Amino acid sequence: MTFEQLDERFKPLHKPTAKLDHLYEGCRWAEGPAYFPAHRALVWSDIPNNRILRFDEATNEVGVFRHPSGYTNGHTVDPQGRLVSAEHGARRVTRTEHDGTITVLADSYDGKRLNSPNDVVVRSDGSIYFSDPSYGIEGYYEGFAAEPEQAGQYLFRLDPITGTLSIAADDMQRPNGLAFSTDERVLYVSDTGNKTMRAYDVADDGTLTNSREFAKCTVGGFDGFRLDERGHIWSSAGDGVHVLHPDGTLIGKVKVPEGVANVAWGGYKRNRLYICATTSLYAILLPVRGAKTM
């Protein structure tokens, strides 16, 4: 069974007959999917293999987009259609320009190197938020072992006008995946340190307030996630994709045979959910579309 319905509110969000497509296998740790509508293509990270892969939706072919990749983890697409990436290896956040050149957006805070940027999201005003846990410097599997220079594991915000980097939140053990609500008034962030997801109110100037626990993962832990256009959160978990109602209730699951790390919406209708799960890339068609603020 592909779906598990736990609440009647999950019924309009899935089709019981929909098939989980297994698109690719051969990764060591698949993460960070990002979709480009104009190219009908998805890129994602294979972190330990130090590469970014690319899935062509028109041909179903997979190729290497970039190798070495700096042990990239999370990716997103900014309002101008450029790839923004969190790199474990170089401990930085970068942007791939339309001509293929790479611009470094952030690699230090207060004169000290970042830990290992993990996941990233761009608000419609151009501000960039990214998580900076220490996973990439704790060994050589997903980066390079090193002593942390930061005093903690923070959520950062990069101002789009001044370029100033500031700590947006410092109350999580290991901040990880993040996504905005459909109106960008709430920022959700997974904390893999205690297997929870937190929510923050977002002010007009980008500051975060009213930190609270939004949900707790029941199998494994929350990692990366995205919202649909109705405000539901489709999050990675140990047994597949957990679907959370906007009130935080777990209402259903997409069952996946591997632990899931992250998801992204794609397809020409924006209703195909791509799923990065340990060694593989999966996808499933749904009756609901992904939110535009992804």
Results as ranks from 00 to 15, higher is better:
T2P: 14
L6R: 15
P12F: 02
H14M: 15
A18H: 13
K19H: 10
D21Y: 14
W29S: 03
F36I: 09
H39L: 12
R40Y: 08
V43T: 14
R51C: 01
R66S: 11
G70S: 03
D78Y: 11
D78G: 06
T94C: 05
E97Q: 12
T101H: 15
T103K: 13
P117C: 08
N118E: 01
V122Y: 10
R123E: 01
I128E: 00
Y129K: 02
P148A: 04
P148M: 04
G152E: 04
Q153M: 12
F156V: 00
R157N: 00
L158F: 08
L158G: 08
G163R: 03
T164N: 11
I167P: 04
A168I: 03
A169N: 08
A169H: 09
N176W: 06
A179M: 10
L187I: 05
V189Y: 13
S190G: 02
A215R: 09
A215V: 11
G221T: 12
S235V: 10
S236V: 06
G240R: 06
H242F: 13
T249F: 01
K253W: 12
V263N: 06
V263D: 02
V263H: 08
A264Y: 07
K269H: 12
K269F: 05
N271C: 05
I275F: 13
I284S: 03
R289L: 05
